[in-house]
């Protein structure tokens, strides 16, 4: 299909899609790789920091541990505040050109992109995870402690499974934000979807048509991701029915009970 100045809007859209779909596809791929990896690494950073920042300080802690804890806590707080308090587009410039200037290393743009999205997401997730942990009833901690679990056993087996379930909606929010915000990485030349669209648009001087397609691709990606994560949420809630097992006296008594008041 060929187009000229008299072609209609739809002819242009179809033409651009046909001519540039491999470009869009590659851009979408890079966007997904960066945002998915960045969200997962950021999530892990967040969980780690969240657990560290909720370590209880009590009578058993000796003075050295207390001081060490204070220092670590202060550094983590600096990290969170700095990365939450500055725009990602600026962080990208500072990290990418800073590393090049100070260490003389030229990061690959993909690596730089993943790195920046990860530490940025980590700063947000740290506070989200901390909130998730604080939202769990104190009785859960006490019960775990009363059967002799340590802080880390309590976190791993009891608190985090509940906290992570509670913060899944916030996490899927972060993921969606990351898919959209990787577009700012075009300033350091990451070949994600926005960067690719810009070159396709520039080649033809057709900005509206190109970015309408881009818009659609972004939406399909974010919508798919939210649906998938919603599916996980439901899955994590477990079955809404349970089986009553037969007692010794009535072994055949096995029937299902429907959940009362399913949330």
């Amino acid at each position: 299909m060929s187009v000229n100045a008299d072609s209609t809007f739809f002819q242009w859209v179809i033409f651009i899609f046909q001519a540039y779909w491999p470009l869009f596809l590659r851009g979408a791929e890079v966007t997904l790789i960066i945002s998915l990896t960045g969200t997962i690494i950021g999530f892990c950073i967040g969980v780690l920091i969240g657990v560290i920042r909720t370590i209880p300080i009590d009578h058993n802690t000796n003075i050295v541990t207390k001081i060490l804890y204070k220092i670590v806590n202060f550094l983590l707080l600096c990290y969170i505040e700095i990365f939450r308090g500055t725009p990602m587009i600026v962080q990208a410039m500072v990290v990418f050109y800073g590393v090049a200037m100070i260490y003389g290393i030229h990061l690959s743009t993909l690596f730089a992109g993943i790195f920046i999205v990860s530490i940025n997401t980590g700063a947000y997730m740290a506070e989200i995870v901390r909130g998730g942990i604080l939202s769990i009833d104190n009785g859960q901690f006490e019960a775990a402690h009363s059967i002799g679990m340590t802080h880390f056993q309590t976190m791993l087996n009891i608190i985090l499974p509940q906290a992570i379930r509670n913060i899944l909606p916030a996490t899927s929010n972060e993921f969606v934000i990351n898919i959209k915000d990787t577009s700012v990485l075009n300033v350091i030349g990451v070949t994600e979807l926005f960067f690719m669209s810009k070159s396709a648009a520039g080649n033809n001087f057709r900005y509206f048509e190109v970015f309408l397609i881009t818009c659609l691709i972004y939406f399909v990606m974010t919508f798919t991701v939210t649906r998938i994560l919603r599916y996980f949420e439901v899955k994590l809630d477990g079955p809404s029915v349970y089986t009553i097992h037969g007692s010794q006296t009535v072994p055949e008594a096995q029937f299902k009970i429907v959940d009362r008041g399913k949330r």
Binding site: G139, E142, A143, S146, N157, Q162
Partner: peptide, 13 residues
């Protein structure tokens, strides 16, 4: 020392 609480505190997960 086993402990039984007023609010049960069963592990919800």
């Amino acid at each position: 020392m086993g402990m039984v609480f007023q609010q049960f505190n069963l592990f919800n997960n």
